[in-house]
Computed example of a mutant assay.
Amino acid sequence: MSETLLVLVHADLRDDVARCAAAAGYRMVVGEPASCRAEWLRARAVVADPEAVTALRSASVPRRDGVLLVAAGEPPPAVWRAAIDLGAGEAALLPADEGHLVRRLTDLRMPRRAGGGGIAVIGAHGGAGASVLAAAAASVAVDDGDRVLLLDADDLGGGLDLTLGVEDRPGLRWQDLTLEGGTVSGQALHRALPAVGDRLSVLAGRRDDPRPVTADAVLATVDAGRAHGDLVVVDLPRADSAVVRGVVESVDLVVLVTTATVAGCAAARQVAARLLHDAVGVGLAVRGPAPGGLRAAQIADAVGMAVLAAYRPDPRLPGALEDGRLRLGTRSPLRRAARAIVQAARIGERAA
């Protein structure tokens, strides 16, 4: 959480809120309720007026702590109900309650336990290895003691449940997931999903059901996992879609995976420019071999991203995947790459 205050109020109240924000030591960010998801998730506190509260409910943003309702007069009951659903617990009538608002904002700056982190992995091109890297990152995090929710949002891929060997285990798939009011319980998800061991739950699609994964379902699941304290790892499709845009705004780190080839470098530039320009944290994972001698640093310069991991191929990996279970040896290049990504995400989460 940053020391920012997301302000979603009409211009008539903005000066009053600005004085309170300055007194409480916040950096004020003015947003639009219909397009403030990234700021909503990352701001330390949110101040919203009745009009903004109504719009936020329609935008299906997740419930969060630190929401304060402000108004010039007593809000009507319908607005109060909507504000409570968003996480607000009290209101301030401005300018009379400026002192109270300053105290509440100051209280919200006190340290508190953060929720879980989020990593998204996207391939620059087909065969880059994004899905396998996402599964490896989830496995490494589990080895470190994290509880992990692994989401396969690429509904035209082979399926991460197949990669991890849990395709025949009972549990919900995307098409079975029903949402009431755009929310879902993180604890309920872990009980309902196919699992690998005690700490890794996998949500993928049914291969016999053509219904696509929806952005509402993916974002509600990401929010639920993070609120539950999970590390959420999302395997994204290479598409300019609401799913991709929403997840990119919702995670701490987006990893763009490419091979060390001229074509891979060109594809990575395209994906970075079109899909990742608004991402808070991004980085490259470059998989060898490099048939033309192209180095990871050269690709990074061309794409405009830092290299998180550069790793050689593991000749044993294709056979292991064909056997139906991803296995990472202690000296596996894939394991080292996955660990670098998990560590980078943790650094980004602490810095946010």
Rank of each mutant, 00 (worst) to 15 (best):
G283I: 02
G283D: 04
L284Y: 07
L284T: 04
L284C: 09
V286S: 00
V286C: 01
R287M: 02
R287K: 09
R287T: 01
R287G: 01
G288H: 10
A290N: 06
A290F: 08
P291G: 10
P291K: 04
G292R: 12
G293M: 10
G293R: 06
G293E: 08
L294H: 00
L294P: 01
L294K: 03
R295W: 05
R295G: 06
A296G: 07
A297M: 07
Q298D: 15
I299C: 00
A300N: 02
A300P: 00
D301Q: 12
G304F: 08
G304W: 06
M305L: 15
A306H: 15
A306I: 11
A306E: 15
V307E: 05
V307R: 03
L308A: 09
A309Q: 08
A310T: 04
A310L: 05
Y311C: 07
Y311A: 10
R312E: 14
R312P: 05
P315D: 13
P315V: 13
R316N: 12
R316I: 05
L317I: 11
L317Y: 08
P318M: 12
P318W: 11
G319D: 14
L321P: 09
E322M: 13
D323Q: 14
D323E: 15
G324C: 05
R325V: 11
L326K: 01
L326C: 07
L326E: 00
R327T: 11
